[in-house]
């Protein structure tokens, strides 16, 4: 079953010098439970594509349907609610809320969903234990290493039980060991939680872990292959 259907998607930016087409006529399908990497050099349109998929940015042309819902048909408030319930985000520079503890950061989205305290507490603890941070529940982001913060971010992304998780270069700021740990966690949670993981990267370690690799160049899909993870 297709979770995401992208049809002829384009995004143009007007810069002082010229009009730039960051995403150019992209059409893709993602199924439930996929673990896919969007790969390409800097400026190839990876982040723009993820932002469009996450409903953070608006396409110039084309459409994105997630579980049957056309993102373009949603009003801003509906889009926020849609993101809250269906999409998890992992950002390159962690972007945890600094005044909240690891536990509270993971609970945050569930709190926005209005889930009962006991339920969200149990889910947050379960996820933090799953990412190996069961002992750091009450630590604030400033007290955690980059790798630990990114693991909290992964737990946060999965907290709302989203249909898919978008991760924008999740290992870019991590050392090899932390990156590998994070990838293993993401892969395991992908299997256990059943959520689709789509991440942009130009890190070969991440590409090697992906079961599907989509190559972008100048905003266009130049290759879309499934593979057996090699690491």
């Amino acid at each position: 079953m297709n979770v995401i259907e992208i049809e002829n998607l384009s995004k143009e930016y007007q810069t002082p010098a010229a009009k730039v087409r960051a995403v150019d006529g992209v059409s893709l399908r993602f199924e439930r439970g996929e673990f896919a990497a969007i790969v390409g050099p800097s400026g190839s349109g990876k982040t723009t594509l993820l932002n469009l998929l996450g409903g953070l940015d608006q396409a110039t042309a084309g459409s994105i349907r997630i579980a049957g819902t056309d993102l373009a048909s949603l009003r801003p408030g509906q889009l926020i609610d849609f993101r809250k319930d269906n999409i998890g985000f992992v950002f390159q520079s962690y972007n945890l809320i600094p005044v909240l503890t690891a536990l509270e950061n993971v609970e945050f989205v569930m709190q926005l969903q209005g889930r009962p305290k006991a339920e969200r507490r149990a889910r947050a603890v379960e996820l933090l234990e799953a990412v190996g941070l069961g002992e750091r529940l009450d630590s604030r982001p400033g007290q955690l290493s980059g790798g630990q913060q990114q693991r909290v971010a992964v737990a946060r992304a999965l907290a709302s039980k989203p249909q898919f998780v978008l991760a924008d270069e999740p290992t870019a700021n991590l050392d090899s060991r932390s990156a590998l740990t994070l990838l293993e966690i993401m892969e395991r949670l992908n299997r256990e939680e059943g959520a689709t993981f789509i991440f942009s990267t130009h890190d070969p370690r991440v590409v090697a872990k992906a079961r599907r690799v989509i190559w972008l160049e100048d905003g266009k899909v130049v290759s879309d292959k499934t593979q057996e993870p090699t690491i």
Binding site: G54, L56, G77, I80, D81, R83, K84, D85, G88, F89, F91, N95, I97, F108, V109, L112, Q113, R156, S160
Partner: peptide
């Protein structure tokens, strides 16, 4: 980030 994860 807060808006991205669903805060209005």
């Amino acid at each position: 980030v807060m808006m991205a994860v669903g805060m209005g």
